[in-house]
Design a binder for these strands. Structure first.
Lengths: 211, 211
DNA sequence: TTAAATTAATTTGTATACAAATTTCAAGCG
DNA sequence: CGCTTGAAATTTGTATACAAATTAATTTAA
């Protein structure tokens, strides 16, 4: 378990619910669990804190942040502002090769029904990333990645997963079609609708059974 | 020099040019300079890296990131999307008390012509923050703060400082007036213009003499 | 019984020492 | 002369040990 991989592992374990929302992560516990000293644990925690994947709990301890409905709504609202920008800036540099790669990912998502929620989340981000990468906006992409990661933990719930398999999926295919047909405005409109829907789905779920 | 303060100190020193753009920061150098061991240095570096105030330079070393004109344009474009959102969401909760606090800050900025660039940057952010805080959007505010910090380093150059004292200042006062008069749409329009101008000023400067 | 205060326990913060990796630089080869 | 190769030097990564701080538990007083 080397440094970079501990950070990755810890992040993945948070996503997958090994350390659920509300749990206080102390360094000793983690260094025991992952069989490393506290130094690399500290490094990973520091980074996760800066990315808001962990938050302060008291003066010195770190916690897996519970996500409130209000926060989810906020995060999706931010995405709603930024992802259209990413798509617009990427559009002129989009190639059929890239659209093909995106298609491949959708097929992976469709065919493998047995994927874990974490894997689906990763593939979903990969799909969006392929479309946004050509924007050559490193800061925007970093930021969007961070936003995606903050909600990934909550996309495993049944209600959300089910809906995902239906609506969200079709929208992905439509999005590719519109981009292939050079219909940028329509694609952006669909993207906005897509984000809005996903946001509403998550927030309404969180309002029903708070994390 | 305790942990939190080392992070603060290092961040301030990067802003103020003690460690200029392009310089590689190695842990030994920093722990000598700040008279602490490498452990707290590592913590601070890790955090600054996650905030994009430092970037990787090679496989393992960290560098103060040079800012390109393209990146500056990108950062301001992001602000252009997000700050109107912050202002709109804060507006219903804005009070005359808060507008008064904002006024006080503008006076501080006007009266003290001898302020350092870093101090002016901090006050400028404080001003915007007062207007955005009532939105109760913690993620949005954290994000905007991060964006502000990434360009603060470059707001000390003469051309920018001079222009700042003129146009930008008036716009701040106008913004407060419009908010006091409940003219939200007009205020948002002015804010957008304000950000756009500041962005163009910085990018054109960076195009002339790259950092 | 509750609330404040003090003490004990745990947990985080830091320094030092050593291992692993990277970077640098010089020698050898094409 | 430039490029690769290899070893030396530097730099980062990690473990252990101890100091400082925070968190908890217990006692004491109102």
């Amino acid at each position: 378990m080397t440094k970079a991989s501990l950070y990755q592992q810890l992040k993945q374990d948070i996503r997958q619910g090994v350390w659920p929302a509300g749990v206080v992560l102390n360094q000793q516990k983690l260094s025991d669990y992952y069989q490393v000293s506290r130094i690399p644990v500290r490094d990973a925690l520091q980074q996760l804190k800066a990315e808001a994947l962990l938050v302060m709990a008291g003066k010195a301890s770190l916690m897996v942040p519970p996500l409130t409905a209000a926060e989810a709504e906020e995060l999706y609202q931010i995405r709603l502002q930024l992802e259209p920008m990413a798509l617009r800036r990427a559009f002129p540099q989009l190639t059929f090769s890239l659209l093909g790669q995106a298609e491949d990912l959708l097929h992976q998502l469709e065919q493998n029904q047995h994927l874990s929620a974490a894997d689906r989340g990763a593939l979903n981000w990969q799909f969006h990333l392929i479309l946004y990468q050509p924007s050559h906006c490193p800061h925007l992409l970093r930021l969007l990645h961070s936003l995606h990661q903050q909600v990934e933990r909550y996309l495993g719930f049944q209600e959300i997963s089910l809906n995902y398999a239906n609506t969200s999926h079709q929208e992905h295919w439509q999005l590719l079609e519109l981009l292939r047909a050079q219909q940028l405005d329509a694609a952006v409109a669909l993207l906005q609708q897509h984000i809005q829907q996903a946001g509403e789905l998550l927030t309404s779920h969180l309002r029903q059974q708070p994390a």
